[in-house]
């Protein structure tokens, strides 16, 4: 058995009478790119929110890096080593591009108010390290030229990449990208694919929650498919593509949009 960074075993989550996640299990090998796919409302986001501590699971458990993953508050997830981006981009708009990435270093640094006010040597050293690392990451995603601009002035694709850099700044073992290709044009998607592959090559496991099938099939080594809160298929992209349950879920047209 390969070295697994993350496993979920029989994870169940109910909201009132509705079972949003029904005994979902999956394994993610270290330094791989893993895709979590499924139609709208399949439970991808719910799964992600339970994993990141926004909701508590009703049954089942997660393990991460050989230890049980037991987060009580959302901010603990980053401490453990899981960083995320958001489907509907959540940058710190009035802060500069560089500062956005610097915020990502928060969880790996420790300077306090006292050090800041009196500019102690330790604080200054740490601050220099933070700045340097942030610049490196901006280089990594190709946004160095915009370091001083407010992040809300960035173009859409740039904002997506900045979110990734900010997540990488937390030194994650696993980075979870929530529909990173949403709203991107073809060129931007290709650049994104290259970036994702580079991140995995550099040793960070990537969990990709995505709609864009082509991107997922090309970039992921393993997939899990959710539908109505259940995992209906799993395996390599080739296996999943042949799976009748997946074909049915995606093409069967059984899903009607629920409108309020």
């Amino acid at each position: 058995m390969a070295d697994m960074l993350f496993t979920a075993e029989g994870v169940t989550k109910r909201f009132g009478g509705v079972t949003a996640l029904d005994k979902v299990s999956m394994e993610i090998p270290r330094a791989s790119i893993f895709g979590l796919i499924g139609p709208n409302g399949a439970g991808k986001t719910t799964f992600f929110n339970t994993l990141t501590g926004l909701y508590q699971v009703d049954e089942g458990k997660f393990t991460f890096d050989g230890k049980p993953l037991n987060v009580k508050a959302p901010h603990e997830v980053a401490v453990v080593g899981i960083a995320r981006t958001f489907q509907n981009i959540r940058l710190f708009g009035e802060m500069s591009v560089l500062e956005n990435v610097m915020v990502g270093r928060h969880v790996r640094t420790k300077a306090g108010a006292f050090g800041a006010i009196f500019q102690t040597p330790a604080t200054r050293r740490e601050e220099a390290e933070i700045t340097q690392r942030a610049h490196e990451l901006l280089d990594y995603i190709g946004l160095s030229k915009r370091a001083g601009d407010k992040s809300r002035t960035l173009a859409y694709g740039e904002q997506r990449r900045l979110e990734i850099a900010r997540a990488l700044a937390t030194d994650p073992k696993m980075i979870a990208l929530d529909e990173p290709a949403a709203g991107m044009n073809a060129t931007e998607t290709i650049a994104l694919r290259e970036l994702i592959e580079r991140i995995a090559n550099d040793g960070t496991t990537v969990m990709l929650i995505e709609h864009d099938m082509r991107l997922v099939m090309k970039v992921c080594q393993h997939l899990a498919v959710l539908d109505y809160g259940r995992k209906i298929a799993g395996g390599t992209p080739a296996e999943v593509q042949r799976d009748p349950a997946v074909i049915k879920a995606y093409l069967g047209g059984a899903h009607t949009e629920v409108t309020k």
Binding site: A73, F92, M95
Partner: peptide, 20 residues
């Protein structure tokens, strides 16, 4: 400083700040 940036992050987006 580190804490000042955390304050600003909190102001801009509390959920994203927690995720960081």
């Amino acid at each position: 400083s580190r804490i000042g940036r955390a304050w600003q992050a909190l102001r801009e987006d509390e959920i994203a700040a927690k995720a960081m």
